[in-house]
């Protein structure tokens, strides 16, 4: 066991060279690589942190925007519902008003139609009544309708002559109106009876096409008459009662005879 000092010196030199070589080719590259990788990792972590913060901010913004949109949507829905409700109420009110107006117009129209129908019915009834009466009088009593009317009015004249004279006052005109001119024999009969009950009165004859069939004797403000109006009015009253009973569901039926 001996020490070769030349070898010792050579080994010291070798060791120092090895220290320099390993520093150059091992330690520095490895440590610098580790530092660079740690720096890169730190940078990426920083970027990831920044990206995460950005993502969180975006998420928060998104949630806020979603909440705002939700609130806007709820407000819009509530507003639309309110507008729809108001429009519905307005349409309903308008419909009710129009319905009421149409009902009123319908009632008016129906009333007008009823009045027209009654007028036509009254006119037809009057004509029918006159025709039937005329036929019945001719067949049963061998008498004309005009003669019967004159006899009826003259009967009233005999009973109310004083009343007519007072109603006439200073007017001494008596007017007889019919729809058709009276036969001359009946006019002569009326002259005679008027002169007997109302002496001094001037009797005149006139025709009125729109007058109800019959005979009217006017003396001043009073008059004596026989027309079919009373009969047609009674017929109309009976028909009204019958229609009203059927409309109300009572179902009354007129008894025969």
């Amino acid at each position: 066991m001996s020490i070769d000092w030349i070898t010792v010196i050579a080994q010291i030199a070798n060791f120092l060279v090895l220290v320099w070589l390993l520093k150059r080719f091992l330690y520095k590259p490895i440590l610098n690589g580790i530092d660079a990788r740690e720096t890169e990792i730190a940078r990426r972590m920083g970027e990831a942190g920044a990206a995460r913060e950005e993502a969180e901010a975006a998420e928060k913004s998104f949630h806020a925007r979603m909440a705002q949109l939700q609130a806007d949507r709820d407000a819009a829905v509530a507003k639309a519902l309110k507008a729809t409700e108001e429009e519905r109420a307005a349409l309903l009110a308008e419909t009710h008003t129009r319905l009421a107006r149409e009902q009123r117009e319908l009632h008016v129209h129906m009333e007008q139609e009823r009045q027209k129908f009654l007028a036509r019915l009254q006119q037809a009834g009057a004509q029918t009544l006159v025709a039937l009466t005329r036929k019945a009088l001719r067949e049963l009593a061998d008498e004309t309708l005009e003669a019967a009317m004159v006899r009826q009015v003259l009967g009233q004249l005999a009973a109310r002559a004083d009343e007519l004279a007072q109603a006439a006052g200073s007017d001494t005109t008596a007017l007889v109106t019919t729809r058709a001119p009276l036969p001359e024999d009946l006019q002569a009969q009326l002259h005679r009876e008027t002169d007997r009950h109302l002496p001094g009165f001037d009797l005149r004859f006139a025709t009125n096409a729109v007058q109800s069939p019959g005979l009217i004797l006017q003396v001043g403000g009073a008059q004596l008459s026989w027309t079919v109006d009373s009969y047609t009015d009674e017929l109309t009253t009976l028909l009204d009662e019958r229609l009203a009973a059927e409309a109300s569901g009572r179902g009354d039926t007129p008894h025969a005879g």
Binding site: I6, T7, Q11, L21, L26
Partner: peptide, 30 residues
Amino acid sequence: FGLNATIVNTWIVMALLVGGSVLVTRNLCP
């Protein structure tokens, strides 16, 4: 001067260490 086995073997060890280091660290990228 005689070049003994101690020095030669030391160079072999050095060559292994340095060569291995150079091979591994020649293309380092972070």
